[in-house]
Computed example of a mutant assay.
Amino acid sequence: MIFPLEELIEYKGNMYEITCAASRRAYQLSMLKDPEIEANDGKVVSLAARQLFTDAIEFRLEE
């Protein structure tokens, strides 16, 4: 799976927020050694971004 560029181009929200969320999710996935990483050829960031853009996971800002 490649990085979801089409979704990134069409994204209308705050680009900084989605970037931070993808980075944080990629860290979580790598620390948990999620089996989906193996199925995604070891591409953790693209997996995290795909999860965010397809609403498989949600993110929110903490205050």
Rank of each mutant, 00 (worst) to 15 (best):
A56G: 13
S46V: 00
L32I: 02
Q28W: 01
P4D: 03
N14P: 08
E63M: 04
Y16E: 15
M31L: 09
A39L: 06
K33T: 05
A26E: 07
M31Q: 15
M31N: 11
L47E: 12
L61S: 03
N14G: 04
L5D: 12
E62T: 09
L32W: 08
E10W: 00
Q51M: 14
N14W: 01
E10C: 02
S30D: 11
E36A: 10
E36Y: 01
E58C: 11
G13Y: 00
K12E: 15
M31S: 08
L5P: 12
P4W: 00
C20A: 14
R50I: 05
E17S: 06
L29K: 08
V44Q: 05
R60A: 09
Q28F: 02
R60N: 12
E7A: 03
A49S: 14
I37M: 02
E58T: 06
Q28P: 11
L5S: 03
A21Q: 14
N14T: 01
G13T: 00
E36P: 04
N40T: 01
N40W: 09
Y11S: 04
E62L: 04
E7R: 06
M15R: 13
R25G: 08
R25N: 07
A22Q: 06
E10D: 03
L5Y: 08
F53N: 15
T54P: 14
A48G: 08
G42T: 01
V44H: 03
D41C: 01
L47R: 10
E10P: 02
T19M: 07
L5F: 09
